[in-house]
Design a protein around this nucleic acid. Structure first.
Lengths: 337, 337
DNA sequence: CTGAAAGCGCTTACAG
DNA sequence: CTGAAAGCGCTTACAG
């Protein structure tokens, strides 16, 4: 398991009978190396199983670590996982390796700011070339500003206030508007809303799209049908159950994200209620659960690919103003009825 | 964005009026530093925003990179994603950072051995302290042997032939046996099998558990009811559809993994067939789709935690024979009937 | 085309 | 308790 120290360029040089500089040139595929010399060195590299120590290379000023970091809250979320996959694809193709860090939540479900600070310091210590962040909140400015000063940062899904950086967002407001419009077009007037945080980030945009769509056609928003701050599918199920039990229940439920949709689907299915479920994010098997479902979907892998693309461009020297990409979303309709 | 070179220990030393050695001692929290000196240095560290260059530290022989790598085939798979989360939790707690690499598959769905070789080389170049691998095949020996010689490797989900290393497996055979037994106990005699590769890895164990359970109670295996080599839920759905259309259809379908289960659930649901679905892996909402379902479940996050735990122990110096952990699985039963 | 030498930012014996 | 010096494994001007 511990097989001595790995061979160094010095070992290769000795083996090939050349200088260390020459080995370096060969390893770096530089020009101006005699073909015969090159072959000799390559033979020694192979014979010794030499692999250049990247830490040593990196030490020289101007040298890159060829490392990018991806900071997410929780990889358990399918959005983050697929995003990470897209990031890895593009990063690897461009010669970067991905460092994965999750910020997590503390026991109370609150953001762990100490951990976030520590992550930022760690990335700085490791001199990563660039960072992709899916921020947990809009107020992360202070935390990521120090990072953004030293390395390009691309934000995904939300842009913290006051930080400079490229950003990749979903068309949250537009998607919500279309989804709500779809319900209204089908005659729904009492539409419930089950969601998480309505104050910031994607949740805020989704709620604003919902309101805008209702307002545009003069359909009233019923305050008693709005449920915010739900964090899990269980909480969404309970909330939806309560809504269905109302004297004048909704005819449709708008769900803010996939956990909300899962909860709502369960509640509607169990109640055997004649209610349409409309949700943001893809939910597997949704269509067979409830008579009629509409979902706003998009490809998280693509979000990751685009975000990594922006970062790679920055690292390649694109010296332009911060850019913003809005990934389009699609409305998919399912149902037996 | 590019704010000059970051401060070095030399800058801190000058600022604090001490030597570089002293700065190093303070930064490394060594003893034998005068309290006043320490404070002075800490003040300078803070003033300059010094963060020790980890590449430079690493260069010294015997110094660790505090980096572990996780190699998976595809993070899109929820198993890998949750596993990665478990790994990250334990690694971070132990002071390691996680490098994420996916091997992927080529266009034809075949393993990309060149990419795997390149990943191994990359990890060696970066001098990672240890590696967690979810191998794509049993014959990966040659590929990971070079790695295992230089750094501890923990294999997850399958152990390639001929490689030394710790391994964390699921109780595949046991889970399959119980699941099959559950079906037999309920009177099923014509049980279909829909699965992927039956030759190696988890698939082989699951199939052998299935056979063993049938054999134990003298229930015959019906060759016309076995479908292997299915790779997606679509392929599983088609296969299940065919099985249901047989003149003498099965009364239950055993599914090898979650994609198979999703496909089978859809097929049974659409056909309105009175068939029980039994599957390995958790499937969200499975219970509301089909009248009766049994699933073998486990916690992939826990698998990741345990694998990372083994690795961290190795890195802490545990010099013991290769260890094997088998993560238990649970049988969960759902249904309206 | 090739080599000797300096230097990247740290850590670590070795003195004191 | 503190500092001067050597050295980790590379890269890169500078000569030749």
């Amino acid at each position: 398991m511990a097989a001595g120290r790995p061979p160094t360029m010095r070992d290769v040089a000795a083996h090939a009978g050349v200088s260390v500089s020459t080995v370096s040139r060969v390893v770096n595929a530089e020009r101006y190396v005699d073909a015969a010399t090159r072959e000799k060195v390559e033979a020694s590299v192979a014979a010794l199983g030499f692999l250049r120590n990247e830490s040593a290379r990196t030490l020289r000023p101007g040298q890159r670590t060829a490392t990018v970091a991806l900071v997410v809250e929780d990889l358990t979320n399918p959005f983050s996982a697929e995003l990470a996959h897209g990031v890895e694809l593009v990063a690897a193709a461009a010669g970067y390796v991905v460092l994965l860090l999750s910020t997590g939540r503390d026991a109370a479900g609150e953001r762990d700011e100490v951990r976030e600070q520590e992550i930022v310091a760690e990335l700085l210590r490791r001199r990563v070339d660039g960072v992709l962040v899916v921020p947990g909140a809009d107020d992360a400015a202070g935390r990521y500003a120090a990072l953004a000063e030293r390395a390009p940062v691309v934000f995904v899904d939300r842009l913290p206030r006051g930080v400079r950086g490229d950003v990749v967002l979903l068309d949250n407001a537009g998607g919500s508007r279309r989804l709500t419009g779809w319900l209204v077009d089908r005659g729904h007037r009492r539409i419930a809303y089950v969601g998480g945080d309505r104050r910031s980030g994607p949740g805020a945009k989704r709620y604003s799209g919902f309101r805008a769509a209702l307002k545009a056609v003069g359909v009233p928003e019923h305050r008693e049908l709005l449920r915010f701050g739900r964090r899990s599918s269980e909480e969404a199920r309970t909330a939806t159950g309560e809504l269905l039990a109302l004297p004048d229940p909704p005819t449709a439920v708008f769900c803010d994200n996939n956990r909300m949709t899962v909860g709502a689907l369960l509640a509607v299915h169990r109640a055997g209620a004649d209610v349409v479920v409309a949700g943001f994010d893809h939910v597997e098997l949704a269509e067979v659960l409830v008579d009629r479902v509409a979902l706003v979907t998009y490809d998280p892998v693509d979000v990751g690919r685009r975000a990594a693309g922006l970062l790679v461009e920055r690292l390649a020297g694109a010296d332009v103003a911060p850019r913003k990409i809005t990934v389009p979303v699609e409305l998919a309709e399912f149902g037996n009825r």
